[in-house]
Design a binder for these strands. Structure first.
Lengths: 377, 377
DNA sequence: ACCGAAACTGAATCATTAC
DNA sequence: AGTAATGATTCAGTTTCGG
């Protein structure tokens, strides 16, 4: 009991120390990634991007979180055992990633059919809530030389929040703008990492699975804000860090191999951050300051007594002095009455109701924009 | 010991009896699919195509921005208590599917991010060997109305053999021909099932999750041979059966709901095998912007069996289901066979080959233009 | 009959803030 | 904690209807 209490106290102290310790922003932690993450405080990062190893079939490559090597076993058990140990490895790093993430943070994992099903099932079991699976469709994949299967032309990413009810960041407008004013879909066409972007040492590619920066660019632009902290437990040659720097995000990496850490450090130092204007993304209306309809009436932008009507002029209403509107015997807010008259569950009164303004028919929202322009220069 | 022996002998007899019992080809078995599959002999079918419930776990109602209501999948068959019970369900039907499959057979499963990771992990655990994961990229998915995530624009299929060393059927040439002489990739662009192909009863869709025939067409053409037996444990309204009949494959279905069995039976009876069928059943199908000749066949714009000829009618050829064409003992793609017959180094099949269309002789290219006109306004 | 407008639809884990 | 108010949000089609 005494021992347990002492241990408890020691751990509490450690946690407190962790919590007050500054995050090692812009650094690559060496050693095993699970151990490295244990040194980070809980609920401290906004997003985790993970590109874990998935060479299940090769064997011998897997180590337990404690560093011990996974022994090969008899052929009969080999399959089960390698899946089992891969699952354990996955559970361990996912568990630490979950601890380190803020409640409103999110997780990205990339993988292929060799490992992604196991990773996906595991993260669901740990309480992560899948928001999308995203397909990276390679525009220039390696062909299947033997002609024995379909060309393996894509990889899969999973994007997950901390739980079913958890909030998360999604820059909807930025994505829609990026996609030529159409909603961004769950399938992304991007070339593989090649040409000058591909890091080489003496003519040989420096890392076997270097990801294209465009992929990380879209991931970060979509699901983080400027200044957010991004953690990559399998940093490799630092694509995550390079793109984070470019997009004005903070980053932390974990990488076991000193060789990759050196290459990544050099690479990220050379990366140029985008300037402020380039970083600004399309914002949703949500971000604009709220204006109550009553304020427009109060300030005279819309006079009491003004007739309102919907686009097809099926309904007409009149503005009252207090910002409510009335139509026959029914009245309410611009939203509530709009919904009531349409029999709809909800209604955005700003876009539903129109008025005559300078000889033209305009939605209320247009007046709101004028008001915002005039009052917030 | 005596007991064990007796049991062994009894089981051997049972197996022998099963093996000699004729397969219920071309029939839909009622009741629970696991029970139904138990009645089938071991190692008796060549391919299993499964479209199991996705376990969607939907929340409340969803409305479009225009206020209309989204008709969601709320059926009892998609409700599971927990991931655990879904996993158990998955393990059960996969186990029977595995028993029923021949050693050189293969398995296809389709799903979404809600369930596919669990299914994929389970089938690996049971010894299946994943050959490809294939992404069905929907050309016309439902948007994300609230702007909260990426448009969920794809579903995932897993194709697996019976084990790492197991053999399997892959019609590489057929796929390459279907894709205009490029290797078929792991991402397939196909429209969702709508229009005349979508089965309706009194104007209401007959089944909430009917799959497009083009999807099954490609699956069967790629991984089965003529005369092979295809089993679908979640038969629904019988897309698998209809396509199997069209492509000259045998089929067995399992379907719990009598209503769906009736619809499927009627549908399959009306389906026409191969040649003259395609045009009438798949008229409104659409596909990728870049049009492969195979796509025109797959979508019914040019029916399998259609005679082709050059402008001076020196050569005649016939269209095959996979988009290849045959003339006497020679065959190939529209380009390759055209070149071969002329003794030319190359040939543009699109302008060389002609067909009768609405009483006139037209080059293939004219049909491609019609197709593009119809699909890309 | 033909044309254009408007309505309808699809495996969907689909809101946020103030009180 | 729950309830009420505010207000943000759609793509590629096919089918129906009015002129």
């Amino acid at each position: 009991m005494g021992q347990t209490l002492a241990r408890e106290r020691a751990r509490a102290t450690a946690v407190r120390k962790e919590a007050s310790a500054p995050l090692p922003l812009g650094t690559i932690l060496g050693g095993d990634c699970v151990e490295a993450m244990r040194g980070l405080p809980s609920a401290s990062v906004d997003m985790v991007f993970a590109d874990p190893p998935y060479n299940l079939q090769l064997g011998g490559d897997l180590n337990r979180p404690d560093g011990s090597h996974v022994d090969a076993v008899t052929d009969a058990w080999d399959k089960f055992d390698s899946f089992g140990s891969y699952d354990a490895f996955t559970r361990d790093w996912l568990t630490e990633a979950r601890r380190v993430l803020k409640p409103n943070g999110s997780l990205w994992v990339i993988g292929s059919y060799h490992n992604i099903f196991r990773v996906g099932a595991q993260l669901q079991d740990l309480g992560f809530w899948i928001l999308n699976d995203v397909v990276w469709r390679k525009s220039n994949p390696m062909p299947n030389f033997k002609g024995t299967r379909f060309t393996n032309a894509h990889e899969t990413l999973i994007w997950a929040s901390m739980g079913e009810k958890a909030r998360y960041t999604f820059n909807y407008r930025a994505m829609k703008t990026l996609n030529d004013e159409l909603q961004m879909r769950s399938d992304w066409v991007l070339p593989i990492c090649a040409g000058p972007e591909r890091l080489r040492k003496e003519g040989v590619k420096a890392h076997p699975t270097q990801k294209p920066e465009a992929l990380l660019y879209r991931v970060m632009l979509a699901t983080t804000n400027k200044g957010d902290v991004v953690l990559d437990p399998f940093f490799g040659t630092g694509t995550t860090g390079a793109v984070a720097k470019r997009l004005g995000r903070e980053w932390i990496g974990c990488e076991r191999e000193a060789r990759y850490r050196d290459i990544a450090t050099e690479r990220i130092e050379a990366a140029l951050p985008l300037d402020e204007s380039a970083l600004t993304t399309m914002q949703s209306r949500k971000a604009a300051p709220r204006v109550a309809f009553g304020t427009l009436v109060e300030t005279g932008w819309i006079g009491a007594g003004t007739p309102l009507f919907d686009k097809k002029r099926r309904h007409v209403a009149t503005v009252r002095a207090d910002g409510s509107i009335v139509s026959g015997s029914a009245d309410g807010s611009i939203h509530g009455l709009g919904a009531k008259l349409q029999g709809a569950p909800s209604c955005n009164g700003w876009t539903y109701w129109h008025l005559e303004h300078e000889g033209a028919t305009k939605p209320l929202d247009a007046i709101r924009q004028l008001y915002l322009l005039a009052t917030e220069p």
